[in-house]
């Protein structure tokens, strides 16, 4: 009976099985990822955190279909991940907006690929413009927007495709601290409303503790998962609360011990 129930349990939305990735740089192999095993359940907010070179962006890009695996399998539900697609929306650190399209046209780009009629495109664009608070800037070009606004367009553009998974590669890294705080809250609001699965790459411990259900700590040389840490804090989280700082300290120590270890070994 329990086996039948076990089979009925939902498959993880993202399943990394013995994933390895080797790059060839000037003839030398770089082991960006080695034997990574990671399962993400639907609706989770997972942060990938680690120092530069730990492979977190590579892992995210494999999930997005922008890189292939050298070994192992990267699956979404039961299917191996192939090419990039609208089911896995990606938000890049450098925005990646189409400069020749207005904000509205950028957001409508994905739905347009599916051949939806203009009336529907307008409806979808309006909905997501409102969600990210950019209705007044619908007809502006990206070159006329601030970094924070550009990132909002990026997020809206990915969401407009009804993606199941939102992949975010250090999305707030290029923004100033104040804008970053605002966008972090907006992201949490959007996540609560849409119940998406979010995979968020960052190197900022505070950001990870604020946002994530689960923090996956990665280390370099070769890139691998070191710890899979569940954040034991209730939401909404307050960054000035003592519990928050305790968790943040724990995580920082976890990370710095790896850095020290890696430095010693080098």
């Amino acid at each position: 009976m329990s086996e039948i129930l076990a089979h009925r349990t939902a498959a993880p939305i993202l399943d990394m099985v013995h994933v390895s990735k080797v790059f060839n740089l000037n003839g030398r192999p770089i082991h960006a990822l080695k034997d990574v095993n990671l399962q993400i359940q639907k609706g989770e907010f997972v942060c990938l955190i680690g120092a530069s070179g730990c492979g977190k962006s590579t892992l995210l890009r494999i999930m997005g279909g922008f890189e292939s695996v050298s070994n192992g399998v990267a699956k979404m539900y039961h299917t191996p991940i192939g090419e990039p697609g609208p089911d896995r929306g990606m938000v890049f650190q450098d925005y990646g907006l189409f400069p020749w399209l207005t904000v509205r046209q950028n957001i409508a780009f994905g739905p347009k690929q599916r051949g939806l009629p203009d009336a529907m495109l307008k409806q979808i664009a309006d909905h997501y413009l409102h969600m990210v608070g950019l209705t007044k800037f619908a007809d502006h070009f990206p070159s006329q927007l601030s970094g924070g606004m550009k990132q909002r367009v990026s997020i809206a553009r990915a969401l407009a495709n009804d993606c199941e998974v939102l992949l975010m590669d250090e999305p707030f890294g290029a923004l100033d601290a104040l804008t970053r705080e605002v966008l972090q809250q907006e992201l949490l609001d959007i996540w609560a409303k849409t119940k998406l699965t979010v995979i968020f790459v960052t190197h900022a411990v505070e950001e990870a503790v604020l946002l994530a259900d689960r923090v996956v700590v990665m280390t370099a040389g070769p890139g691998r998962v070191e710890r899979d840490y569940r954040i034991p804090l209730e939401r909404p989280r307050c960054i000035t609360a003592p519990e928050f700082n305790r968790v943040r300290q724990e995580l920082t120590e976890m990370l710095s011990s790896h850095v020290a270890h890696h430095a010693k070994a080098a």
């Binding site: 697609g85 896995r88 890049f92 690929q113 553009r157 990915a158 495709n161």
Partner: peptide, 18 residues
């Protein structure tokens, strides 16, 4: 053309031909 734009387009469902 910035490679990033190709990635973004592919992610949004733009097929190779268009």
């Amino acid at each position: 053309v910035e490679p990033r734009l190709f990635e973004a387009a592919a992610m949004l469902g733009c097929k190779g031909t268009s």
